[in-house]
Amino acid sequence: LLGERLGAVPVALGHDVRAGGLAEGRIGAGQGADRFLFVPLGTGIAGAIGIDGRVESGAHGFAGEIGHVVVRPGGLPCPCGQRGCLERFASASAVSQAWAEACGDPAADAADCAKAVESGDARALAVWQDAVDALADGLVTALTLLDPRVLIIGGGLAEAGETLFTPLRDAVRRRVTFQKLPEIVPAALGDTAGCLGAGLLAWDLLDTEPTGTIPTTATPPEVTT
């Protein structure tokens, strides 16, 4: 509809996570990698499968939905209709809920849990480790299927830095057998990844290459009507 309104101007439309993955793969944490997997840990968990500078969307537009891999059979019900999905245990919202219940503060969130982990709180450590273990189980399934060279973790939970990445790398390392362990790195572009990815989709429509450095904190132009 927007393309019709704009006439000759091509319009790019992309899934938010896959657009973010495209940006991370081309100009962010996965730059230069021929195969990568981008997994943002936010309200839910999704994923973007990167192959040679593009992101695979799948036959029906659902490729990369790692958040709905069942890691705890018979576990918590998920809105998708299954029980035990990864995002019910390892998303930022899942950690927030688990920590709020554990500490008795309904306003507590995942960031509060990470701070409590850093201070050595035993309840927080238990909540955090449960999430890390579930995440590692899901990621090893993805590694087995996709064999990425780089695994990029983003979203709100990744803002905990090494409080997340140190135990996560250890947990994944313990689980791999024949699989090749990828480099596990934090996302580089933050909340701007989706916007930058949408820009890259538009550049692809024009069949040109972006020139110069794309700013990660660009201010949108003022729009008048």
Rank of each mutant, 00 (worst) to 15 (best):
D137W: 12
T217V: 07
Q97G: 13
P77G: 09
P106F: 04
T144G: 13
A111K: 13
A114N: 02
A59H: 15
V17L: 01
V69M: 13
G20C: 05
V39Q: 04
T208A: 12
A218D: 01
H15W: 09
V185W: 10
F178R: 07
T144R: 15
L146I: 11
E24V: 10
R174I: 02
V185C: 06
D109I: 10
I49D: 02
G81K: 01
L205S: 05
R72N: 14
R18Y: 13
V132A: 06
G199E: 09
G84W: 05
P73G: 10
D170S: 14
A124G: 14
A142Q: 04
D207N: 14
C80Y: 05
F165P: 00
E65P: 09
P79K: 07
G50M: 06
D16I: 13
E183W: 09
L189E: 04
T211D: 08
G44D: 03
G61S: 05
T177L: 14
T141K: 09
A171I: 04
P40N: 01
T208L: 13
R83P: 03
A160T: 02
V127Y: 02
A188E: 12
A23C: 00
V39W: 05
R173V: 06
Q82G: 10
P79T: 11
G156V: 11
G50T: 02
P10A: 11
E87Y: 03
L41E: 08
L196N: 02
A110Q: 04
T43D: 09
V117H: 03
D105Y: 02
L2M: 10
G32R: 06
S96G: 06
L168P: 01
A19N: 07
A92N: 05
Q179N: 14
F36D: 01
G32H: 10
R83V: 08
V9G: 06
A102Y: 01
Q97C: 08
G81Q: 04
G14Y: 04
A108M: 07
R35A: 15
L189F: 09
I153W: 07
R123L: 09
K115D: 13
V140C: 10
A98I: 05
A134F: 08
Q179R: 11
R123K: 12
G32F: 13
D52S: 15
Q129N: 12
A108G: 06
I152K: 00
S96P: 00
A29C: 08
A187C: 10
T43V: 12
I214Q: 04
C85Q: 03
A131V: 05
G3T: 06
D16A: 09
T216L: 06
A90P: 07
T177A: 14
V127N: 10
G47T: 02
V127F: 06
F36Q: 03
T177N: 13
A126W: 01
G155F: 12
K115N: 11
T43W: 09
G25M: 15
G25A: 15
A116E: 04
Q31C: 11
A29R: 08
P210M: 07
W203H: 10
G190C: 13
A59L: 14
C113K: 00
T192E: 12
I51F: 11
G21N: 03
I214T: 06
T216Q: 05
R149F: 05
A46K: 02
L125H: 13
I51W: 11
A116Q: 01
E101M: 10
A193T: 00
P73E: 14
G74A: 08
L151G: 03
W128G: 03
T208K: 12
R72M: 09
